[in-house]
Design a protein around this nucleic acid. Sequence first.
DNA 1: GTCCGGCGTGTAACTAGTTACATCGGCAAG
DNA 2: CTTGCCGATGTAACTAGTTACACGCCGGAC
Lengths: 328, 328
Amino acid sequence: MKRTTIADVAAAADVSVATVSRVLNGGLVKEQTATRVWDAVTSLDYTPNALTRSIFAGRSSTIGVVIDDLTSPFYLDLMRGIDEVAAANDSLVMFANTFHRADREVAHVQTMDEQRVRGLIVTSGESTDERTRRMAVAGTPCVIVARAVPDPPPGLHSVTLDNLAAGRTMAEHLLSCGHRSVGVLSAGTRPSQLHRAEGLRAGLAEAGVPLPEDAVVTAAANAEVDEAIGVLLGRRPSPDAIVCLAGRRTLAVHTALSSRALTFPGDIGFLTMDDFAWGPALGITVIAQPSYQMGKRAAEVIVDNPDRPVQLTFAPQLIARSSCGEQH
Amino acid sequence: MKRTTIADVAAAADVSVATVSRVLNGGLVKEQTATRVWDAVTSLDYTPNALTRSIFAGRSSTIGVVIDDLTSPFYLDLMRGIDEVAAANDSLVMFANTFHRADREVAHVQTMDEQRVRGLIVTSGESTDERTRRMAVAGTPCVIVARAVPDPPPGLHSVTLDNLAAGRTMAEHLLSCGHRSVGVLSAGTRPSQLHRAEGLRAGLAEAGVPLPEDAVVTAAANAEVDEAIGVLLGRRPSPDAIVCLAGRRTLAVHTALSSRALTFPGDIGFLTMDDFAWGPALGITVIAQPSYQMGKRAAEVIVDNPDRPVQLTFAPQLIARSSCGEQH
DNA sequence: GTCCGGCGTGTAACTAGTTACATCGGCAAG
DNA sequence: CTTGCCGATGTAACTAGTTACACGCCGGAC
């Protein structure tokens, strides 16, 4: 099945391919000729090949996105922000999910490079850093989301949350709700998790509330959350609030607490990261990331392609609902 | 910033571009020459241009997806299924969100065609039908999700839920839980919604339970749901169960019921479509679509590209939790 | 010593477009 | 009447690759 090409259109309109190209892209053409060409385009149902256009332009118009896990509400809103900017710039989004597998991360970034994407947005781990660095140097702007990059070359940008501030905001809210003994669940050892814990500890310390090392437990997967919560609840003094440092663990933590028949704020306080659709219905207080905005800005950096590395930091926002109790 | 091309590699290895191409794609080359070429590839950090490959192959290796609204859990799982198959076939997914805007739907499908995608998966409305039909005829396999296509030409496939069965399953479950007066919220007039209502009505009728026309109200947007629920609750006889025919309205219906201080199953029964992450935590009974499987199969149809139109229908599955009460 | 075969490689045509440059015709100025 | 210029169009080179075909060269067979 051979598709109609510009040559077919040229033959049908009895002009050269150059003239057809000029009609399509707005060159200097007599109106009468242009009409003939448009007639041929319509009757042959000609759709120009964007790939060929791109190879001539040196790169395609699509924006590449390599993402950890679409399931997380943070990433979902991020995608919507990216898509918004892409649509406004006649770009498409080329998308690949890594499911936290390092081998897929590297393979997908490589494939995006081969596709000569206009720019690349990466939310995955450090395994891709070397490759994105080379891509940036070679002229493809890259934006790392949710992680700052040390000593970035021109073309390598980053978009992050102020995680230290997020931790401090958590501390403020917990204190104002009267909590004095906090148990923390972290999703891993990435810098974002560490900084949130650090900010939380600093904020609590200013009010004289300690956060011992062993009051922070790590669950690297949702399946580990229940046991981790068990450990936290078994500590003495018994925690009066549970803090979850990652939005993708919210459901698992909620389930672990519910299965122990604990309700909030009555039995225990519950504070977590990232707003989500069911948050209002469940009355869960969260520290929200402006994820839609972060996606938009990341895509805008790709489109603008600034000379100097851009490092954008966004402020976290407390959305106080009922799960931590009343503020005083 | 000029990227390194195959010609640069050829010059560095002191061979012709043809030889480099053969080394890269596994042709007949002396081992010693191949080593020289690979050395040049590595030292120049050469990444082949997939666009050029694609133009020669006639089409790209990416799968296009035009989706209504990524926010809906159904579409999210669908995407994961598609992505899974794509990754297994060294394809990427090119993605565009339409947010239910018909103009965007057509534009995005057109852009996908220009990108010469390997195949296209469309979940949007009827506005794109003419174009997808032409694409299918021109050789790009297309899969319509969640809607059957009348009289499909070769290359135009569909993947749907058995919506009539979904409605009947709803009826069975409601009846077995003792409900005798059902209020239904529909998300629009698409065939899927109509068929679900039809199945529900037929199932109820077999047990002698009527479902009058005005017991089915339509909310075309989440903002209209609250008023629509008000209408349903105001009917006499007062409904003992609310059925929601679309997963993307679940949250809005839940909110509308909660805001009236109605709890389920105590005050009223609640049954909705599509399973979602927080369903278990909230005890909401759902009719689930095998969305991940549907995405996988849709992508597989693209990859296999069968000669005859494929029309896949999937069976709905009741996931009984507590929101409709006890089954008898 | 020629002939034949096949391996390894280069040349050039091809993909589907864009665009720089050449060319042609017509009209106005000198 | 010639020159000059400009608008409209064609020719051909270019993008970055793949691949059909030709050719040189080496070995073994006759």
